[in-house]
Design a protein around this nucleic acid. Structure first.
Length: 957
RNA sequence: GCCUGGAUGGUGGAACUGGUAGACACGCAGGACUUAAAAUCCUGUUCGCCCUAAAGCGAGUGCGGGUUCGAUUCCCGCUCCAGGUACCA
């Protein structure tokens, strides 16, 4: 007998079936997933089956999952999807003879634990530890082949020591454009000492000073440090942050919704603060170029490209005599060819020159406008994107080529943060400029004979230029080259590349993160001594900002460097630890380095990385940046860290509903009507726990226990059942649609869960979780188990030589699974396993030669049941994990004949079995001789016979 | 708006290079075994028409066109859905 899933064994032997049980006993050998899975999980852990060495004669393969943040809610059934896929791949690669690194760890710094600490006073380290233990238990239940000896936790001092160490390397480096790489800051100091700032090609702040070697040497130490900070890759910068006074903290952009804090709804203001930043813009071009060398999903590559946002154009200086010291405004344009169509310069309202440019007469108007835009940005500015607004400053600039006066305006359609925060308005070529000009009655000058200006701008590059001075009559390409040359000659502009991406802020006014290994001396940041790493996170009395508005670390008592100097009080952002963690797995215990050169030399990069696409422009960009930096400094080898990347789809929730009948007054009654009959009543829908619903049929007893007020619920059934409605929503507790993998495993086993998650559909596709259908996979495993057992449940395999049909079934699956795994099509493998086992069941095949090989092929998907059967087959326990994937022999699949579908004019009419080695003329003869074919030809003359060997025959009349 | 995916039975999905659309499952219907249930097994299941049945006919992969002997697959135009992005000069 087979035990009913999910229920206690003895509890379910009712009186009436005890007799039957006694007769049929003993049936020990039934598929009993709970004992089997526990047994093998313990065996793998006790024997360190999946521990991997950093040396091997085998080729290396590194399979990485995006590590999780251990949240208090634990894993739901959606989380392991990617882990299961990567585990199947890892196990497969091991069978294929690779030395596979497949580790797991925790991204354990983060906001939720801190939030919990603020509310309860419990130290985030304790919360985190508890959550990690829960995660580990859940992960272990699924039977992953992780090498846990390499586990990392970003919040562990032995880990964040190296995060801090990398920060120090970034602080001690600058980007030399002449070598196109980062180099130690000492080289810059040497340059300054020898030649001053002359000839330095750096990615740096805009306000760097120009000085001679002598001047440099005469600088005070403080001046030197101040200047160097403008070059460092980790540097301090005044940045605008979302400051929420009520919460006393800085919020991330996604914590601000409609101008107020997501939590609590408090007002948020833009505040300037000194912040640590990372000069990621130095790597913009390499980050862009690298995308061509990696095998990532196209949408993700596209997202990174857009994020980096490269645009090629020119910067042009318009002279503004009244400005005095630097008498010009610089604009960036991708269409320098339209420069003769300029009718105005438009600056962002926040542009730093607005004050100086505003004449007395326009002052009131400009100030009113600025006030208006400020208010607007606090509200939802996106809403009225198309409203044209602006104000004239009263000043004029000089067109660099025509010498004519160009009025200077401000308008909020120009963004302060992009380019130079100023544009040259060309209404004939740019729709925004067009709307602006028509609104304010500015002239619109056509600049090309191909332009059609019927109520809108025409950005065409076709035709020849008109009204355009030195480029009149030229085409686009000629015009651009001519203009750039001319602008350069007169010192009014040059070809420029602009990137949308900006330097990343690298500080949070939070507690639960890595302390920045910096202290302040004379208000200048200094690194602590590397030997003092890690700089431990100090204890605080509360996890809130101080009364004076400093971050929580300001509360730490006696927390001073060498007892004197103030430490940096902000901590690192969430992405710090995750920007390099894959290297730590290579050599997780190393106390001397973040990983040894030998380990890095062996593992090099991640061959396969699986994770969600939500990290497209965060983690995946920062990681590539840090990796390139570490490579520049000679610590790592590869330019790109993740060779191939796959996004697993999101698993959404599938909610179930019951329908409560309402009485005449619209009040809820105690009666619930089944889904199909609900339209006959006035009802209100209520979420019901999906765990008490099977195939949309409600378990009435469980429902009565679901909530106390349902205890006496009555039902209007259809066909004797209560059917629930359903809807796809986010998986969340409040919607009662969370499915815990532990429950599934208890009922059906980990092997079933693993296979079912894969069976659900293509890995990359998002889909709702629906437990309907899991029975099919469970049945499959029981059928597979039965192949090895007789009707009495005794393990019986035969040593007889397999038949050709049996060998064909086996080799079909060997080939199919190999092909499927290589292209990450795990769902089709599961189907094929089912087909294979169905075939072998029909053949009553229990031959060792077949079943042994099948165990190996199935092992990556269902590791527990296969290990058990492998042992029963007489192999040493645990050896299945290191078996060799069977070699595919195409001979077993060769067919001598094929049942051709025969179609007439493209419509399939009949099947005809013909030898495969028949010549085309013989095929035609055979087909045309066929009765069915003749019937469809209706005596019409045959024009042509299409014959594709092994595929189809098509008769055209 | 723009970029990127996607749309196939009652449901999840399959069809890999243009070659038998709906594999494999779920669900449903019917049957066998059973006192009964569970489990297991068998049969059927795209839709419509016709029919006692067998068989047959027609339509069919979001919609409309096209290329081709042949299109879920390639091309053009559209609709809807999902994700990303947003006045980026």
């Amino acid at each position: 007998m087979v035990l009913p899933p999910g229920k206690g064994y003895l509890r379910h032997i009712t009186k009436s079936c005890i007799f039957a049980t006694l007769i049929k006993f003993p049936r020990f050998m039934d598929y009993h997933h709970r004992t089997i899975e526990k047994k093998w999980q313990k065996f793998w852990a006790d024997n360190h089956t999946f521990r991997v060495d950093n040396t091997s004669a085998k080729p290396k393969y590194y399979v990485l999952d995006m590590f999780p943040y251990p949240s208090g809610a634990g894993l739901h059934v959606g989380h392991p999807l990617g882990y299961i896929a990567s585990d199947i791949f890892s196990r497969y690669k091991r069978l294929k003879g690779f030395n596979v690194l497949h580790p797991m760890g925790y991204d354990s710094f983060g906001l939720p634990a801190e939030q919990y600490a603020i509310q309860t006073g419990q130290h985030p380290a304790i919360t985190t530890e508890t959550n990690i233990n829960r995660y580990r238990e859940q992960l272990d239940n699924i039977g992953f082949s992780f090498d846990w000896s390499r586990e990392v936790r970003t919040s562990d001092p032995t880990f964040y020591k190296w995060t801090q160490w990398i920060f120090m390397q970034l602080f001690n480096a600058w980007y030399d454009k002449s070598q196109d790489r980062a180099v130690p800051i000492d080289t810059l100091v040497l340059h300054f000492e020898a030649q001053g700032s002359q000839g330095v090609q750096a990615v740096c702040d805009e306000d760097v000073r120009h000085f001679t070697a002598g001047e440099w040497q005469a600088f005070t130490d403080r001046e030197k440090q101040q200047e160097l900070l403008k070059y460092r890759l980790a540097y301090l910068r005044e940045s605008t942050v979302n400051w929420c006074a009520a919460l006393g903290t800085v919020l991330a952009n996604d914590e601000v919704v409609n101008g107020v804090s997501e939590r609590g709804g408090y007002p948020v203001e833009q505040k300037k603060m000194m912040q640590w930043s990372m000069r990621i813009t130095a790597y913009a071009e390499r980050l862009l170029k690298g995308l061509e060398t990696i095998d990532w999903p196209e949408p993700l590559v596209e997202m990174q490209r857009n994020w980096i946002g490269k645009s090629v154009g020119a910067s042009v200086r318009f002279g503004v005599p009244i400005l005095g010291k630097n008498p010009y405004i610089e604009v960036f344009t991708t269409r320098v060819d339209t420069i003769y169509g300029v009718n105005a310069l438009v600056l962002a309202p926040e542009h730093e020159l607005v004050g100086a440019l505003t004449t007395d007469g326009q002052k009131a108007e400009v100030e009113a406008y600025i006030a208006q835009t400020k208010k607007k940005s606090e509200l939802d500015r996106m809403a009225d994107v198309r409203t044209v607004s602006g104000a004239f400053t009263g000043s004029h600039a000089v067109h660099p080529l025509t010498g004519k006066d160009v009025p200077i305006w401000i308008a909020d359609y120009v963004l302060a943060g992009y380019g130079t925060g100023a544009v040259m308005a060309v209404p004939s070529g740019d729709q925004r400029d067009y709307l602006f000009s028509t609104h304010f009655g500015l002239p619109i000058i056509p600049i090309s004979d191909a332009q059609q200006l019927d109520g809108q701008a025409d950005p065409t590059k076709e035709g020849c230029y008109i009204n355009s001075g030195i480029i009149n009559g030229m085409t686009y390409r000629e015009a651009v080259d001519t203009l750039i040359a001319e602008l350069e000659a007169i010192g009014a502009g040059k070809a420029t590349i602009n990137y949308r991406m900006r330097d990343a802020i690298f500080g949070r006014q939070r507690y639960w993160g890595e302390p920045v290994p910096v202290y302040f001396k004379d208000e200048l940041p200094q690194l602590i001594d590397a030997r003092e790493l890690p700089l431990l996170l100090p204890e605080v009395d509360k996890y809130l900002p101080t009364e004076s508005g400093e971050p929580p670390l300001g509360r730490a008592k006696n927390w001073k460097y060498q007892g004197t100097f103030e430490y940096e009080l902000s901590t690192m952002p969430g992405w710090a630890g995750s920007s390099w963690y894959w290297y730590r797995y290579m050599d997780a215990q190393n106390a001397e380095a973040f990983a040894s050169q030998e380990a890095i030399g062996y593992w090099r990069d991640v061959d396969l990385y699986i994770g969600g696409s939500e990290h497209a422009t965060g983690h995946l960009l920062y990681s590539r940046f840090w990796n390139k930096f570490l490579k520049d400094m000679g610590y790592v080898i590869e330019e790109e860290p993740f060779k191939k990347l796959i996004n697993q789809g999101m698993i959404q929730g599938r909610s179930n509903f019951v329908y409560r009948v309402l009485d005449e007054e619209g009040k809820g009654t105690n009666t619930f009507v089944s889904y199909g009959l609900k339209d006959q009543y006035r009802t209100i829908s209520l979420h019901v726990d999906v765990n008490i619903v099977t195939n949309d049929v409600l378990d009435l007893d469980k429902f009565r226990k679901f909530r106390p007020d349902f205890a006496d619920a009555e039902f209007i059934l259809e066909n004797g059942k209560y059917l629930c409605g359903h809807e796809v929503e986010k998986m969340s507790k409040s919607k009662y649609n969370v499915v815990n993998p532990d429950d599934i495993i208890e009922q059906y086993g980990a092997d079933t869960l693993r296979m079912y998650e894969m069976f659900l559909g293509p890995l990359e596709q998002s889909k709702p979780w629906n437990t309907n259908g899991i029975e099919g996979v469970y049945k499959f495993l029981r059928k597979f188990w039965k192949l090895f057992h007789d009707g009495e449940g005794n393990f019986v395999v035969s040593d007889e030589a397999p038949s050709r049909t049996e060998l064909k079934a086996l080799h079909k699956i060997i080939k199919k699974v190999e092909d499927d795994i290589e292209r990450f099509s795990f769902n089709t493998s599961v189907s094929s396993f089912m087909i294979c086992v169905n075939e072998l069941t029909d053949l009553k095949c229990n031959k060792r030669a077949i079943l042994e090989q099948l165990c190996i092929v199935l092992q990556p998907y269902a590791p527990h049941i296969t290990e058990e059967l492998w042992e029963l087959l007489g192999h040493a326990p645990g050896t299945l994990s290191n078996a060799s994937y069977p070699a595919f022999n195409p001979d077993y699949l060769v067919e001598s004949e094929f049942a051709y579908p025969v179609s007439v004019n493209g419509k399939t009419r009949t099947n005809l079995t013909l030898p495969l080695d028949l010549a085309q003329s013989d095929v035609e003869k055979a087909v045309l001789a066929n009765e069915d074919v003749q019937r469809y030809l209706e005596g019409k003359p045959v024009k042509k016979v299409i014959y594709v060997k092994g595929r189809i025959v098509n008769v055209v009349v």
